[in-house]
């Protein structure tokens, strides 16, 4: 897969692209592809500054069910601004991924563990692999920073998100009963970027 900032990939028509930590109920049927929307250029960039925070919060609050305070957004975005990737179309924010990278030392070896905290794409811009691209770009940055595995949680009912991550090679690592505040169960997903036996 080749992705760059202006890619508009339309072959995947299955991603719901509103994931993590939990997403609001998605309609059973996806809205039809809007050819006008698809023809517009999508620009990807990392978080620049506080002036973008409100837009990110609005987007997440619209599509994620979990209520996050401003402190949660700041925790992630201000600590790892380069891991907050945004997708815009004609200057309008249409998708964002918010991530974390923890550096730790295990058995005298430096290890980076990535975490995808939030991902959302505006409904009318879905089915264009924007979510996949956002995740891909954030993981690429994590790899540059020494990341060895990436984890996230997704609601068991969020089939679109599960498919998106599954297609990227994430596997379900653990089942979490009533994980979210709305009492919905979750799976913890993991993507392994290094061999388990490397050491």
């Amino acid at each position: 897969m080749s992705i760059n900032n202006s890619d508009i990939l339309i072959e995947d028509s299955k991603n719901s692209e509103a994931t993590n930590s939990s997403s609001k109920d998605q309609p059973n049927t996806q809205p039809p592809n809007d050819p006008i929307v698809q023809s517009k250029e999508i620009v990807y960039h990392s978080y620049h500054g506080e002036e973008e925070l409100e837009g990110i919060m609005q987007l997440m609050q619209e599509y994620l069910s979990e209520p996050y305070s401003i402190y949660t957004y700041r925790y992630f975005i201000n600590n790892w601004p380069q891991l907050c990737i945004m997708a815009s179309c004609e200057g309008k924010l249409i998708g964002t991924v918010v991530c974390q990278l923890e550096q730790m030392r295990i058995d005298d070896v430096d290890t980076g563990k990535g975490y995808i905290a939030m991902l959302a794409v505006r409904e009318e811009f879905r089915k264009q692999r924007i979510g996949t691209t956002l995740v891909y770009k954030s993981i690429q940055k994590m790899i540059e920073l020494g990341c060895e595995e990436v984890i996230l949680e997704a609601e068991v009912t969020n089939k679109g998100a599960l498919r998106l991550y599954s297609n990227m090679g994430f596997i379900k690592d653990r089942y979490l009963h009533r994980y979210y505040l709305n009492a919905v169960d979750a799976w913890r997903l993991k993507l392994f970027l290094k061999s388990a036996y490397k050491n």
Partner: peptide, 21 residues
């Protein structure tokens, strides 16, 4: 099988059976 642009099938296999190591 996923395309595995990131990660590998091998790593998934290793992690699944890692507790047996």
């Amino acid at each position: 099988c996923p395309e595995f642009d990131l990660g590998k099938k091998e790593y998934c296999y290793e992690q699944r059976f890692l507790p047996f190591s």
